[in-house]
Design a binder for these strands. Sequence first.
DNA 1: AATGATACCAACCGCGTCAGT
DNA 2: TACTGACGCGGTTGGTATCAT
Length: 350
Amino acid sequence: MGRQPCCDKVGLKKGPWTAEEDKKLVDFIVNNGHCCWRTVPKLAGLLRCGKSCRLRWTNYLRPDLKRGLLSDTEEKLIIDLHSHLGNRWAKIAAHLPGRTDNEIKNYWNTHIKKKLSRMGIDPLTHLPIADTHLSVGKNPLVSTAEPCNEVVELNNVEFSSAKLEAMSTSGSLNHSDVFEDDKSSVETSNYTIPSRFGCDAVSLFNAGDGTGSSPTLPFAGKRDNCWESNESMLLLRKEAKVEVEATAMTMHGDDGLWELGDFVGSSLTLEPPPPPASMSSSSSNSATKTSPELKWVNGHEVAVPHHMDMIIAGSFLAPYEANAQLWTQGIYPFPPWEGFSVTSSSSHII
DNA sequence: AATGATACCAACCGCGTCAGT
DNA sequence: TACTGACGCGGTTGGTATCAT
């Protein structure tokens, strides 16, 4: 038996709020807060249910709300976040200060969906529509029911099997601590990516070409993010700390999950890590170069070019296996972020 | 000017989650 | 452990504005 509607009591008003009701609600909350929404309407002198009051406050009256159209940057961020969060509007809204889940949901349904469709992108899968249709039932990277065991190699870069180890600060990482919705566990020394995130769960980050050129994030960091490194090993920690080869970059997040939103809002330029020892001038044998090798939970494997030596959970590239497949084929499935371009089968920060 | 179609978005509804008992 | 109730989330509805004919 379902819950009784909260607003079926006789005498409670429904429908659009009047200016007078708004004023009563704002005055009350400003003066008293809203410790219990159920009591708010009674104490504020409103003939509304608590739920209606909460909605009106959070979606319309809250003083920290932004009004007006969403900017291009916000729109791009919504698209990217939606590509790996899906219709979890509240989570998406958490990355856009001053915007509500309702507002983003409405904007998605009225603007972005149509825009993506016009661009030939399926707003549900974020895949090119034609490719989606062609691939169904044929490309196992599209069909999550049929794992693919092939190894996808990027470019002609020589790969080796440097280990990507995931560890918590105590030495062993609980996978669900990092990927909030995934309950699977880390497998051996390879970091296993939850299939829900697909190949893009961990983004490969161009940290330079090995010559010491400075990598720059195409988006910016908020919070007190910074990076630190460790010797020859990638460590993904609960505190959102990644340690990369040689130099030092530590990122301190607050939710243990790295995602695009963590980097939006300010500028963050990474110090260039020195090239790995195996890439120094004395070493010309590419076969000896080390690089991380990621193994996807559904059997997908992606070998990573050695210059891609940073990883970020949550992607600015593409969320699904098929998108990563497109990417490795030199097809970039999304509109590019400002300052970021993809050429051939690789990515470059510009 | 009138009418119908479409777009937009505030508000509602019902369910899931979780804390308190 | 089971139950209850408050809150939050995502899907949907319906009223209003705007556009097209």
